[in-house]
Amino acid sequence: MRIFTLLIVLLFSFNSIAQELNAVVVINAEQTNKADLQVFKTLERSLTEFVNNTKWTDRRFKQQERIDCSFNIIITQQDGNNFRATVQVGASRPVYGSNYDTATFNFNDKQFDFEYTEFQPLIYNPNTFDSNLVSVMAFYAYTIIGMDANTFKLNDGDKYFQEAKQIVTTAQPNNQTGWNPQDGSQSRYRLNEDLLSPNFREFAGIMYSYHRTGLDFMVDDKKRSKQTISTTLSQFQSLYKKRPNNFLTRVFFDTKAEEIASIFSSGPSVNITSLVEVLNQVAPTKSNFWRQIKF
């Protein structure tokens, strides 16, 4: 009887451990004028299974701890097994003590060309470049996990960004855009390089302070939380001095601008004069959001 009970406990424990990501993959092929092709439905299903069923780390995740994320892939051209596309990648995590999910990452990758044969297996091997499709999805899987980790523990995302760097290094010799220094200021290469650069170490601290010591305390003390977030956002001045209009600042405010405007437009009043000045300096393209800040 005790053996039977132990087996049940072990089975329950095994089933309660899930993979890291809870991803939604959407393929939009309307621009190809071939949106009804079965290959797009197969690709969507295969990518969903690939991202959600691959074990990306050695961490143990419970089902409710999986990271919600999305991949909105827009196919712009299709010629046989060759696809030209963009991918909008997003991720979020819950805020402590609330029903609110806060975005942790939001990026539109416009350098996403790949080859795909319907029903081909999608398998990630960190030591080889098997396809641009697999490498791009794996790169963002690790980037999402790293961003999420940094919101819970200072610098905890570095090991996952290093995994993403391995993907970059392996992909570079294969003549695919997005992986090399010459591929522009908003490439996968640049994103990973800056996340690991000593010149931008403040960014990891900003991600941690904004979420863990800011948002997660909103339910207990909203005014204190707003003050913490305001102080945290002022740290972007340091990044601005190193490189105005740097990539990580743009990624952060593409993800957070609407949320920041909402935080500082209601609830208990805090001094936001200097905050608005900082925001207009470091993220001037989001000025329409900063004008909404009233308290």
Rank of each mutant, 00 (worst) to 15 (best):
286 K>Q: 15
238 S>K: 15
208 Y>M: 00
224 R>V: 00
277 E>W: 02
62 K>S: 14
139 F>E: 11
48 T>A: 08
88 Q>A: 12
244 P>D: 09
176 Q>V: 13
108 N>I: 01
6 L>K: 10
26 V>L: 10
273 T>K: 15
14 F>H: 12
47 L>S: 08
83 F>W: 04
92 S>E: 13
118 E>F: 00
292 Q>Y: 02
139 F>R: 07
254 D>A: 05
95 V>Q: 13
292 Q>I: 01
46 S>M: 04
237 Q>Y: 00
9 V>R: 07
6 L>P: 03
285 T>G: 02
174 N>G: 06
50 F>A: 01
13 S>I: 03
164 A>H: 09
170 T>S: 08
74 I>E: 14
286 K>H: 15
50 F>T: 06
268 P>C: 03
216 D>A: 04
24 V>I: 07
102 T>L: 08
215 L>P: 00
76 T>H: 14
94 P>N: 10
172 Q>I: 05
97 G>F: 11
139 F>H: 13
9 V>G: 03
227 Q>F: 03
86 T>P: 02
110 K>C: 01
71 F>A: 06
164 A>L: 09
112 F>N: 06
234 S>W: 03
279 L>I: 02
220 D>K: 10
88 Q>H: 13
263 I>W: 05
191 L>Q: 11
204 A>G: 11
277 E>G: 00
119 F>V: 00
39 V>S: 12
51 V>W: 03
225 S>K: 08
67 I>H: 12
120 Q>D: 12
185 S>H: 07
183 D>I: 01
102 T>S: 15
286 K>M: 05
231 T>C: 00
186 Q>T: 11
253 F>G: 01
125 N>I: 06
147 M>R: 11
288 N>P: 01
1 M>R: 11
112 F>H: 10
201 R>S: 13
168 V>M: 14
119 F>R: 13
123 I>H: 13
68 D>M: 05
120 Q>V: 07
190 R>D: 10
218 M>G: 00
182 Q>E: 14
187 S>F: 08
266 S>H: 08
243 R>V: 02
276 V>D: 05
158 D>M: 05
8 I>H: 06
269 S>K: 15
259 E>A: 05
165 K>C: 01
73 I>Y: 08
168 V>P: 10
174 N>K: 10
281 Q>P: 02
